[in-house]
Simulated scan of single mutants.
Amino acid sequence: MTSTVPAAVTQPQTLGPVRAGQAPTVDRSALQAVLLDMDGTLVDTEGFWWDAEREVFADLGHTLEDSWRDVVVGGPMTRSAGFLIEATGAAITLAELTVLLNERFEERITRGVPLMPGAARLLRELATHNIPTALVSASHRRIIDKVVRSLGPANFALTVAGDEVARTKPHPDPYLLAARGLGAEPGRCAVVEDTATGVAAAEAAGCRVVAVPSVAPIAEAEGRVVVDSLEQVDLAFLRTLITPVN
């Protein structure tokens, strides 16, 4: 049975592109907001994407190499799909492949979305303490809206999708947009990510990062904390990442 998070009533639901003035300004000290990745961080769906990619390319007469999984994980659809087209030589356009992959992935998530261990507890805690929270994903809006139904839309003040920004991860744009939408300073936002691509985006935005690797390992670095599971992450832990302003 798939576990889901009960929708919290303390956070407003704001789906779609972030607009100026959309969220209230928060206190300009200590931890101001928490920004969360989706696939592989909150929901156990990285394997869903890989299965979808393998199935679509099998239909096209190609077999994907397992070593390619580390290349395509966590990135924008255009990068992942483009790499697989080039690697296999498949006779399909990027636009056509994107449609097929999204459709195959949607088929899988309609059967239920498994949450990562610790995800439900963390979202409840953030909502209970009224911590401004955003979902920041490289997945397209059509995918995010379906997954958020399992996570509880009211647990997020806003969501940012990969097809709503000119440059998605590994560029900092999605996290800068989320921070601005929450009225927070990037340096006072804690980000939770599971891939090197997402970590690069968050760090480029100036956020403090907790990496919870899902598929490929992520090395520790200055200003970055690496943990084994989301079960090790709670509000008290996230607050330790930010240096309070006197």
Results as ranks from 00 to 15, higher is better:
residue 1 M to L: 05
residue 2 T to A: 04
residue 2 T to V: 12
residue 6 P to M: 01
residue 6 P to D: 02
residue 6 P to E: 02
residue 8 A to N: 11
residue 9 V to K: 14
residue 10 T to Q: 11
residue 11 Q to F: 06
residue 11 Q to D: 01
residue 12 P to C: 02
residue 12 P to E: 00
residue 13 Q to G: 09
residue 19 R to F: 13
residue 20 A to D: 15
residue 21 G to H: 10
residue 23 A to V: 09
residue 23 A to G: 13
residue 24 P to V: 04
residue 27 D to H: 10
residue 29 S to K: 15
residue 30 A to D: 14
residue 30 A to S: 13
residue 31 L to R: 04
residue 32 Q to F: 14
residue 35 L to E: 14
residue 37 D to A: 11
residue 39 D to T: 10
residue 44 D to H: 10
residue 45 T to P: 07
residue 45 T to Y: 07
residue 48 F to E: 00
residue 49 W to G: 02
residue 50 W to I: 11
residue 50 W to C: 09
residue 50 W to A: 11
residue 52 A to V: 07
residue 56 V to S: 01
residue 60 L to P: 14
residue 60 L to S: 12
residue 65 E to N: 06
residue 65 E to G: 02
residue 66 D to G: 09
residue 67 S to G: 00
residue 68 W to K: 15
residue 70 D to F: 06
residue 71 V to H: 06
residue 74 G to Q: 12
residue 74 G to K: 14
residue 76 P to A: 15
residue 76 P to L: 15
residue 77 M to W: 04
residue 78 T to V: 10
residue 78 T to S: 08
residue 81 A to D: 05
residue 84 L to F: 09
residue 88 T to Y: 08
residue 88 T to M: 07
residue 90 A to N: 07
residue 96 E to H: 01
residue 97 L to Y: 05
residue 100 L to N: 00
residue 101 L to I: 14
residue 101 L to E: 05
residue 102 N to H: 01
residue 105 F to A: 03
residue 106 E to W: 00
residue 106 E to M: 08
residue 109 I to V: 13
residue 110 T to F: 10
residue 110 T to W: 06
residue 112 G to R: 11
residue 113 V to M: 05
residue 114 P to G: 01
residue 116 M to Y: 07
residue 118 G to E: 05
residue 119 A to W: 09
residue 121 R to C: 03
residue 124 R to P: 03
residue 126 L to Q: 06
residue 126 L to W: 04
residue 132 P to D: 08
residue 132 P to R: 05
residue 133 T to G: 03
residue 134 A to N: 11
residue 135 L to K: 12
residue 136 V to Y: 05
residue 136 V to I: 11
residue 136 V to S: 07
residue 138 A to Q: 05
residue 140 H to A: 13
residue 141 R to V: 07
residue 142 R to A: 03
residue 142 R to W: 00
residue 144 I to R: 07
residue 146 K to A: 07
residue 146 K to F: 01
residue 147 V to Y: 03
residue 150 S to L: 02
residue 152 G to N: 08
residue 156 F to G: 08
residue 158 L to R: 10
residue 159 T to L: 13
residue 160 V to I: 02
residue 161 A to F: 07
residue 165 V to W: 09
residue 165 V to Q: 04
residue 167 R to L: 12
residue 167 R to I: 06
residue 167 R to C: 06
residue 168 T to L: 04
residue 171 H to L: 05
residue 172 P to E: 01
residue 173 D to C: 00
residue 177 L to S: 03
residue 181 G to R: 03
residue 184 A to E: 00
residue 185 E to H: 15
residue 186 P to Y: 03
residue 187 G to F: 00
residue 188 R to D: 04
residue 189 C to Q: 11
residue 193 E to T: 04
residue 198 G to P: 12
residue 200 A to G: 05
residue 204 A to R: 07
residue 206 G to T: 02
residue 209 V to C: 10
residue 216 A to R: 10
residue 217 P to Q: 13
residue 220 E to I: 08
residue 225 V to S: 14
residue 230 L to Q: 05
residue 231 E to G: 13
residue 232 Q to R: 04
residue 236 A to M: 06
residue 240 T to M: 08
residue 246 N to R: 13
